[in-house]
Simulated assay, not measured.
Amino acid sequence: MHIGLNLVFLVPGHTGGMEVAARELLPALVAAAPDVRFTAFVNREAAAADGPWHDTMPSVTVPVHASNRVEWVRGEQVLLPRLARRAGVDLVHSLGSTGPGWGPFAKVVTVHDLIYKHFPEAHFGLRSLGMRVLVPLAARRSDRVIADSQATRDDLIELLDIPSSRIDVVPLAARPPRVTPAPEAALRGRLGLGDRLIVLSTSAKRPHKNLRRLLEAHALLPAPRPLLVLPGYPTEHEGELRDLAAQLGVGDDVRFLGWLEEEDVEGLLGAAACVAFPSLYEGFGLPVLEAMLRDVPVVCSARSSLAEVAGDAALLIDPEDPASIADAVGRVLSDASLARDLVVRGRAQAARFSWQATAEGCLSTYRRVLSA
């Protein structure tokens, strides 16, 4: 069995949770199936960067820069099928929700979410158009579709009319720590965090992540408030969030930190008294499990996939109600017994997910397709 892995979408450092999933899945696949031949198909950006597509398997460079959306589409829809045919793969697994619509090989696509259906404003310009066209194309022309969660499976059935018999649910898992966390005292000093309790939200600054209501909830907490820390690359939406924080009178209680190195993110997780994840929609919600794996209590939206990922190990909130968010955060910060219980439950919940299980689920899908 020769499996091609479509990573043409992956621009290192710019692809979010899909990049995390790909980086974790590739070595897990190789470990779970040493008898299977894998070939990774990568763009020029990934070819020039470190990654498991070099370390664990042979790779083929699709000669496009995927940071250019037109080039990405050309690479995936025109060049990849030719290169995969030349490499002699039996099946191409596309890991980024889109995939080639043709080619003399079997096809599997992992659709992480249908956010473009629920929140069209989450993507802009050509990417938005691409999602509307390419995700349905990949889902309908693939032999089987993998969904990260039951919620995404339900969306595929309801919104794209994909038969349930063609969908396999294969959950992801938490990314384990791979670096030494930055020391807390030095980190607090360097980032200007002082000595206050930290509420951390590792969400992209996009409207569906619901940071507006998190700010509104923060304003409802009694003074002296904890410090709300919002790392992550800047977006157009960040300006609106900064303005809102000022209007609410909590500008001094919020830190917009920009993009951070992994050591600093791990250090923030180690320093946080609570992780708040109030998203309105997620295909899976990796930050929830990652916080639990690091023994941080979690306050989490009950929407989409998040309730099934969090289980009974987080305080679930109504993400459209700032009072609900504020109440849950306040409870975690003021009740040490509750916080300890959430840590214990979270550790057990995170342990229910593993990249080995994710790899075995994908391999089961490959065998099912090829045996048919």
Results as ranks from 00 to 15, higher is better:
residue 197 L to P: 14
residue 168 D to N: 04
residue 168 D to G: 01
residue 112 H to Q: 14
residue 165 S to W: 08
residue 160 L to E: 13
residue 129 L to Y: 11
residue 124 F to S: 13
residue 170 V to P: 03
residue 156 L to S: 04
residue 198 I to N: 00
residue 171 P to K: 09
residue 144 R to G: 02
residue 144 R to M: 12
residue 107 K to I: 03
residue 112 H to Y: 13
residue 175 R to W: 05
residue 129 L to S: 13
residue 97 S to D: 08
residue 176 P to S: 15
residue 94 S to M: 08
residue 92 V to T: 05
residue 79 L to N: 02
residue 170 V to D: 06
residue 134 L to A: 09
residue 95 L to K: 06
residue 188 R to V: 07
residue 120 P to C: 09
residue 160 L to P: 10
residue 169 V to A: 03
residue 89 V to I: 14
residue 180 T to V: 15
residue 82 R to K: 15
residue 101 G to W: 14
residue 82 R to M: 12
residue 174 A to W: 13
residue 140 R to Y: 07
residue 121 E to F: 04
residue 155 D to S: 04
residue 78 V to Y: 09
residue 180 T to Y: 07
residue 110 T to H: 04
residue 187 L to R: 12
residue 186 A to K: 11
residue 138 A to P: 04
residue 145 V to C: 03
residue 132 R to L: 07
residue 79 L to C: 04
residue 144 R to W: 11
residue 97 S to Q: 11
residue 136 P to A: 06
residue 93 H to P: 01
residue 125 G to I: 02
residue 160 L to H: 12
residue 173 A to E: 06
residue 191 L to F: 10
residue 80 L to Y: 12
residue 157 I to E: 15
residue 113 D to A: 08
residue 109 V to R: 02
residue 133 V to G: 00
residue 99 G to I: 02
residue 96 G to S: 14
residue 91 L to H: 06
residue 147 A to M: 02
residue 159 L to T: 00
residue 131 M to H: 14
residue 163 P to D: 10
residue 87 A to R: 08
residue 156 L to N: 01
residue 183 P to M: 06
residue 87 A to W: 00
residue 159 L to C: 02
residue 108 V to I: 15
residue 164 S to P: 00
residue 117 K to D: 11
residue 200 L to H: 00
residue 137 L to R: 14
residue 127 R to L: 15
residue 120 P to K: 06
residue 163 P to L: 09
residue 91 L to G: 01
residue 110 T to I: 08
residue 110 T to G: 06
residue 155 D to F: 02
residue 99 G to P: 05
residue 166 R to V: 10
residue 164 S to N: 03
residue 121 E to A: 09
residue 188 R to C: 05
residue 193 L to I: 11
residue 170 V to M: 07
residue 153 R to V: 03
residue 179 V to P: 01
residue 108 V to A: 10
residue 174 A to N: 09
residue 195 D to P: 01
residue 95 L to H: 06
residue 163 P to A: 10
residue 164 S to F: 00
residue 158 E to P: 00
residue 197 L to N: 11
residue 172 L to C: 07
residue 146 I to N: 00
residue 135 V to G: 04
residue 85 R to P: 01
residue 83 L to G: 08
residue 149 S to C: 03
residue 117 K to L: 10
residue 129 L to T: 15
residue 82 R to H: 11
residue 142 S to C: 14
residue 87 A to M: 00
residue 132 R to G: 11
residue 88 G to Q: 07
residue 125 G to C: 02
residue 160 L to Q: 10
residue 144 R to D: 01
residue 97 S to Y: 06
residue 111 V to I: 14
residue 187 L to N: 10
residue 193 L to H: 07
residue 132 R to F: 05
residue 119 F to Q: 04
residue 200 L to E: 02
residue 94 S to F: 05
residue 190 R to D: 15
residue 128 S to C: 06
residue 180 T to G: 06
residue 141 R to N: 09
residue 197 L to F: 06
residue 125 G to A: 15
residue 153 R to E: 14
residue 158 E to V: 09
residue 185 A to K: 12
residue 89 V to W: 06
residue 164 S to C: 01
residue 152 T to D: 05
residue 83 L to D: 03
residue 151 A to V: 09
residue 103 G to A: 09
residue 97 S to F: 04
residue 96 G to K: 03
residue 139 A to C: 10
residue 199 V to T: 14
residue 106 A to H: 14
residue 105 F to K: 05
residue 84 A to T: 11
residue 131 M to I: 00
residue 86 R to I: 06
